[in-house]
Design a protein around this nucleic acid. Structure first.
Lengths: 133, 133
DNA sequence: TTTACATATGATCAGTTGTTCATATGTAAA
DNA sequence: TTTACATATGAACAACTGATCATATGTAAA
């Protein structure tokens, strides 16, 4: 019934009802938006960015990663769990050592887009665009 | 002097010195990694994801946005400031009303990549891949 | 088995983030 | 100028995040 829309207007006064209705129809749900946000959240930390950046170039074990990015092994291990949970990295075991690498190429593309966005303001970004594929 | 490297090994015992040295050479700096992380951080919130998703389809004013995503106008205004600061949206004024829209197309590409990553596990993601360009 | 070592996990805590409520700003009509 | 309205901003607070330290797990050599 057409009246149900009216109730909303008591709480939030929108100005362009047609536009709002149209956009609402193709709107992403709360859960879906959360899933997308979670992917970006996984990339939204300096330590994890450096870890993924290193893994773009070569598979590395935990203590190598710690040495490369200058963080503690415990910290790296904790962050690797987050990356694993979100399926951005995978690992293989060789004896006592776990070798981590990127799970797929989406991370690379995400980084490239972010670098292109950054390169509008920051000169350094261009050099890395050449570097990653 | 070649000995300086030796000091590092007292703190962090890395196993593959050559690999670590090679990756270190092309490593992104702390500040640069932080800049990239900040871009992803801007996208790492459900409310902002929904806002950007809405703006992909049509320019909208603050109260329209609030109505579309079901949040308070104050909350939307706060989040818009974050999106403005990070240059993901821009606005034009028409009388009392501010119309917001996407600043450029990088957001769309970033969303597409995230959706492709998500579509490995989540069936809903594919439908939005068709929707956004 | 012990022992050593690579890595994972749990608890704690400071720092950050997002929402809400209250208040301020800026614009235009009356 | 008042008034109304669209939006911005500030303060306060709960929830979340990441680093650290301590401890546990799993693997392989001794």
């Amino acid at each position: 019934m057409a009246n149900e829309d009216r109730f909303d207007r008591c709480e939030i006064s929108c100005i362009h009802e047609e536009a709002v209705a149209a956009v609402k129809q193709t709107m992403i749900s709360d859960d879906e938006a959360q899933s997308l946000a979670d992917i970006f959240k996984t990339l939204a930390d300096r330590t994890r960015v450096k870890m993924l950046f290193a893994l773009m170039q070569k598979e590395l074990c935990v203590c190598d990663l710690a040495a490369v990015i200058g963080a503690s092994e415990s910290s790296v291990s904790h962050q690797l769990r987050i990356l694993r949970t979100n399926k951005l990295v995978r690992f293989r075991r060789d004896g006592k050592i776990l070798y981590y690498s990127l799970a797929d190429d989406h991370v690379i593309t995400l980084f490239r887009q972010a670098l292109e966005h950054a390169s509008h303001d920051e000169a350094w970004a261009a050099q890395f665009l050449d570097l990653i594929k």
